[in-house]
Design a protein around this nucleic acid. Structure first.
Lengths: 342, 342
DNA sequence: TTGTATGCGTTATCAC
DNA sequence: GTGATAACGCATACAA
């Protein structure tokens, strides 16, 4: 119990006090089935007594594998990253794995080198890769050739089930836009995400799918591009709203841009939702905290992270873990029927 | 360069190829001053050639210390935590340290046990503790008795300089509220943070200081408490705004609650900022992304994190690192002169 | 069921 | 300056 002495107790201390060999103690630690019950209990009581905790560095050395998993991301959104971290830790609970974080700049010229040396230096057991970095196939290859396990998180089928947790962004957006159409909107604008993002492509395609299915034309003046930030969302919405026949609703490819759309509307004296319905994607904190609260799409990021972590640390059952996760439409006050229909 | 073979090269490989002993190679790695220049260069070229990277687990074992530092937090705010992580990584850049994250639930009954076992199991070199957990002196003691270094981050003088990075919340709020007073507000409401938080106390005190200095009375009906969340901020503001003589301005102890104040005002048809000025604290993402954008206080969290990391990994110069960090008032559109003064 | 000898990759001691 | 040799704490092969 007490642990005041400087040096931590080792397996040798346990063995000596229990009057057995280290190997026997090792068997207790590693839950070896062949052990006399009495011996086991004796050793366990000694372990509890002197507060012995196996040294993970020594274990890592002997086992030639360590218990660190890395989280590589280029922070697309703070809340997302943190939720993901939370889910990973849930998936790792009860194991001896720890989570090492590594934010990177995907535009840095030495991006790959820095990721490579991160994996090498820490001798990572495996890595989790978040979008948009996860969409980079070269990165996947780099990690693989390092002999490092990995699981990518993405909004499309980027890899085999064993290496992927996937959300169905396209379907989710299609359903979301159909909700707008169901309300009576026919002129609907799209604030697209940046070109480099797979999620942006999927969401845009879902939007077009919905419009197409319902025979609605998409006015080119009602489409603009942002890069997932508030300011670009605001600018894109400005362009759309200033077009000759502005839409009665706008779908933005993420919540942050949707918040920008809202401000762009306010600056033009356009009432939301009365004269303009707005819809976002992600259900991040801001969605519920602005006025009016945003209708948006929530994807189960914590559950995805949990599954990703489990795939990583249990490769043998990785393909049995859930890979595809469905998103939900969260209807709030920012979307109503267009004025003409009321 | 090539690293296709399964086994990574070890110090023995380097020694053999370079025709020296491993101790000599070790000297190169650890920048020992006593080394023949030629020998050094020879070894360095071999290292680069075969792509040798020292195994951190083996080093940790031999050195009886590892290179992991832990970040313990009870996510007060996603953006804050992520910014802190970023700053820590900046402070750690160029070192061999890695950052292991550990979100916890400060209300969990086994909080201390879980933190203790985190430190023990990973044999952490040191930990960084974020508020509000950092305010818990017992936790500081726990970490210390584990023989683990630590640096706390707080909004007041919680520990000695060597173990602390500190923001001046009280002064910052005083200055912020004086800005409101300068605009002509005399009836100013306060949405306080939760009791358990030192930052909440400091900010409330700063508020009272400002009012006191200017001889302004604080109507008890103009004070309400939240717990740093949007919903509680909204509820607290509701109570204040429904009082007989509502204030013309409200200071909320963080941005999330300020966003709630804004919605509470909207629901009552109170125009912001025309009839109610609102001020937040933290300058998190939401502050600039709502309408009107929030006047708020920004504290240099990245710089604080950088300093905290450096204090941790360079104990010998820890007290020379900056400890006190000043915050800035960010004036945006949510605060204007009260209607009566215009 | 339990113990002995050996190795994992690195650093420290103390010679030369 | 450099090199044998022994730790560091744990796990595995192989015996007993």
């Amino acid at each position: 119990m007490a642990r005041n002495s400087e040096a931590k107790p080792t397996i040798n201390d346990v063995a000596r006090i229990a009057g057995v060999s280290k190997k026997t103690v090792s068997r207790v630690i590693n839950r070896s089935p062949m052990l006399n019950q009495a011996t086991r209990e004796k050793i366990e009581s000694v372990i509890a007594d002197i507060g012995y905790v196996p040294n993970p560095q020594a274990r890592a050395l002997a086992l030639r594998r360590n218990f660190l998993i890395g989280l590589i991301h280029d922070n697309p959104n703070a809340q997302m990253v943190l939720n993901f971290q939370e889910g990973v830790l849930e998936g790792l609970a009860g194991t001896e794995f720890a989570l090492v974080v590594r934010p990177v700049d995907r535009h840095a010229p030495d991006l790959f080198d820095s990721i490579r040396s991160f994996i090498e230096q820490q001798r990572l057991y495996g890595v989790l890769i978040l979008p948009p970095l996860s969409e980079n196939d070269e990165l996947g290859a780099l990690v693989r050739e390092q002999g490092c396990r990995y699981v990518r998180m993405g909004s499309a089928r980027l890899d085999d089930a064993e290496h992927l947790v996937e959300s169905n962004d396209r379907e989710a957006v299609r359903a979301a836009v159909e909700h707008l159409i169901g309300l009576g909107h026919t002129r609907i604008g799209l604030v697209q995400g940046p070109d480099g993002f797979r999620s942006a492509r999927e969401r845009a395609q879902g939007f077009r799918d919905a419009m197409g299915v319902h025979g609605l034309a998409l006015d080119p003046a009602h489409v603009a591009k942002g890069n997932y930030t508030f300011d670009t969302g605001k600018a894109a919405a400005g362009a759309i709203l200033d077009s000759p026949h502005p839409p009665t609703a706008i779908f933005a490819s993420n919540d942050e841009m949707a918040a920008g759309v809202l401000v762009a509307a306010r600056e033009r004296g356009i009432d939301v939702p009365e004269r303009l319905s707005i819809m976002g994607f992600d259900d991040t904190a801001i969605a519920a905290h602005i006025w009016p609260p945003l209708t948006t799409v929530r994807w189960p990021i914590v559950a995805m992270a949990r599954a990703a972590a489990r795939k990583l640390v249990r490769p043998e059952t990785a393909s049995e873990e859930q890979s595809l996760f469905l998103s939900d439409l969260i209807v709030r006050a920012s979307t109503v029927a267009p004025a003409a229909k009321r």
